[in-house]
Simulated scan of single mutants.
Amino acid sequence: MAAIAAAPKDASLEDKIKNQVEFYFSDSNLPRDKFLRSQTGEAGDGYVNLDIVANFKRLKSLTTDLSVIRTALKTSQLVELNEDKTKLRRKYPLPPSISNKRKTIYVKGFPTEEEPQLESVVELFSPYGVVRSVRFRRYPDTKKFKGSAFIEFETEEQAQRAAEEEFLKDQSGAELEVLTKDEYFKRKKQREQSTTASRGAQEEVDSSEKENIASQSKEASFQRGLILGLKNIGENVTREEIKQVFSSFGEISWIDFSRGQSTGYIRFSQPNSAKEAVRALQEKPDLKDKFAELWVLYGDEEKEYWSKVVQLQKEKREKSSKRKKNFQRQSKSKRRKI
């Protein structure tokens, strides 16, 4: 799985070089980079020959001039050069315990014919926060792109914000599925368990269809009183601002809103949170300019909203399942040709 440091599209060459070198020595990459770790020692703060690092593929694609690399690293807060500028190291040891799982999302649905440009992926997810790295996933034997990637953000909050985006399209128009890394591994484990249980007589049963049925059954008996409606939302109100204001009333499962829309919905995790929000904000006139009208969905309106949620999730799973089946058919066809 190749990892690539993410730099803004319009960054200067020096910034791109510094960003890439700092990524090599970062908390995110160094602990899992066996070769570089063998050079830097267990604490990760040992010197490495500059010409070794300069020969790494991604850095080499930026420049092969060691003097340019030295200049770019002058302002680095993470790495430093020795006195004669021939070696570099981290300025401080690795933390004793590192986990970037909650800062990382899993994205699938990219066209598999050609690996997307790093810059386009960074640009797509930059609205949600600072993208630290992109790990394109490939098959171990063929190195062919799987159509998915792990994307690491600077903070857990930024990763969660991106994972809340249920529907997203890349520059080619392909629909992407976005999950937290935790949710990805949870679903992967469920699929593996389902495959093991169904092996034999039900070997051909598609586990994603079973998940679909179970999910629809669960959603059919939805908990009432969780949905808060917002009308006449101010023009400059952002999704993050809505989250900041309303999370004080309870845990938010989903925010159905895009900037510029006049109407939106908040799905809380606990009952009474929506009621509490309506009651409390009626006593705060300073927020009326941003959220002119709030109400809790009940009756037919609530059922209709949940029906739309179920339908959208069903369509999303069906598209994911269709992509999976197409890939399986293509793989079988290739094996036959071989």
Results as ranks from 00 to 15, higher is better:
114 E>W: 00
67 S>F: 08
173 G>Q: 07
153 F>K: 05
143 K>A: 08
147 G>S: 03
116 P>L: 02
100 N>A: 11
86 T>V: 05
146 K>A: 13
151 I>M: 08
120 S>R: 08
72 A>V: 03
112 T>P: 00
159 A>H: 09
83 E>F: 02
130 V>N: 15
66 L>T: 12
120 S>V: 00
86 T>Q: 08
131 V>N: 09
65 D>E: 15
174 A>F: 03
157 E>P: 01
166 E>Y: 06
174 A>W: 02
65 D>T: 08
120 S>Q: 09
181 K>C: 13
142 T>V: 01
164 E>W: 03
84 D>E: 12
122 V>Q: 12
90 R>E: 09
111 P>D: 13
102 R>A: 12
160 Q>A: 12
66 L>P: 02
168 L>D: 05
154 E>N: 11
158 Q>D: 15
163 A>S: 15
97 S>P: 00
89 R>E: 06
179 L>P: 01
147 G>H: 01
144 K>R: 12
94 L>Y: 04
168 L>M: 14
181 K>Y: 13
123 E>I: 02
59 L>G: 12
146 K>L: 14
130 V>T: 15
135 R>W: 04
162 A>Y: 06
159 A>G: 15
107 V>L: 08
150 F>D: 11
89 R>L: 10
133 S>Y: 04
59 L>W: 06
122 V>M: 04
124 L>T: 08
179 L>D: 08
141 D>S: 07
79 V>M: 07
152 E>A: 11
147 G>C: 04
73 L>I: 09
152 E>Y: 01
173 G>F: 08
112 T>W: 00
105 I>S: 00
60 K>H: 14
175 E>V: 06
76 S>Q: 07
